[in-house]
């Protein structure tokens, strides 16, 4: 267990000392300040626009961190052969992978908290804020990013970063389009498209379960069932992807 934290700490340090992180952070802040400018266009809807775009900034900022940094997280170690030095020490391959996940996961949590704090400070003066919904939405964005990180690490143990990025981005986009895909495929007269649509919507995770933005904007109640469902889906996918990643990583040769 101790070695997992040592690997995680090193990974966190590595990412915190990387300029890419600050680029993504600035990008997320830029989105939030753009929402302020857009909010000026509509006096009545200013709070909604800023909140909506601000939550998108958290989701996109943390998601991009998972996809782009996560995609090269394991591969970089293999390519530069640092993994050989590390795995020749008393660190099992499973511990190495969990450590890498935790290391970047901690950075994502930190970035999520920072962006959420900036957003909270901005929107508190724009009107009534549904704080409970706001916190749940930010946690939802965080869990979505951590799911994407699991996907990136899974592909990263056997694919090159460019392919890992493409696959993870595809799952991100697909995950948010599953409701629409299911709806339109079931309306289609084409039986093959119907079957494919149904298959995809059953197999791939529906990332809209992590999306609570509307509840923040309209003040809708969030049921404990939807929170439990989101968490259940996340934990199930996390376990499946972790087992699959570890199994592949345990088998591979480091040539």
């Amino acid at each position: 267990m101790r070695n997992i934290w040592i690997v995680a700490h090193n990974t966190t340090k590595e990412i915190l000392r990387d300029k890419v992180l600050y680029g993504l952070f600035v990008f997320a802040l830029f989105l939030i300040f753009c929402s302020l400018l857009l909010g000026q266009l509509s006096f009545a809807e200013q709070a909604r626009i800023v909140t909506d775009l601000g939550l998108v900034a958290t989701q996109v900022g943390c998601g991009m961190l998972s996809v782009f940094v996560g995609s090269s997280l394991v591969w970089k170690e293999i390519e530069r052969q640092t993994v050989l030095t590390l795995l020749s020490k008393p660190v099992s391959r499973a511990k190495f992978l969990i450590g890498k996940f935790l290391g970047l996961g901690l950075v994502i949590i930190l970035v999520d908290i920072l962006i959420s704090t900036v957003l909270a400070l901005l929107i508190q003066n724009l009107g009534d804020v549904h704080w409970y919904q706001f916190i749940v939405a930010e946690i939802g964005a965080l869990f979505e990013s951590l799911f994407l990180l699991s996907v990136a690490i899974f592909f990263g143990v056997f694919c090159r970063p460019i392919m890992t990025t493409v696959f993870t981005l595809s799952i991100w986009v697909l995950g948010h389009g599953i409701n629409d895909l299911h709806y339109f495929s079931q309306k289609s007269p084409n039986e093959i498209f119907k079957a494919i649509g149904l298959g995809i919507s059953k197999f791939f995770p529906n990332l809209d379960y992590f999306n609570f933005k509307e509840a923040v904007i309209y003040g809708d109640a969030i049921s404990s069932l939807s929170i439990t469902r989101a968490f259940g889906i996340w934990i199930a996918w996390f376990i499946i992807l972790s087992i699959a990643s570890t199994w592949i990583f345990e088998k591979r040769d480091f040539t």
Binding site: I6, N10, R17, Q81, T82, T85, S88, K89, P90, V91
Partner: peptide, 29 residues
């Protein structure tokens, strides 16, 4: 692994660490 020391061919280590930090990191393992 606790009995073995290994130096890889073409050693490349973590860029972001200093020499001392890297050795401490290895020792902690």
């Amino acid at each position: 692994k606790s009995k073995i020391g290994f130096l890889t061919e073409r050693p490349y280590f973590y860029d972001h660490l200093t020499g001392r930090e890297f050795l401490k990191f290895c020792a902690q393992l």
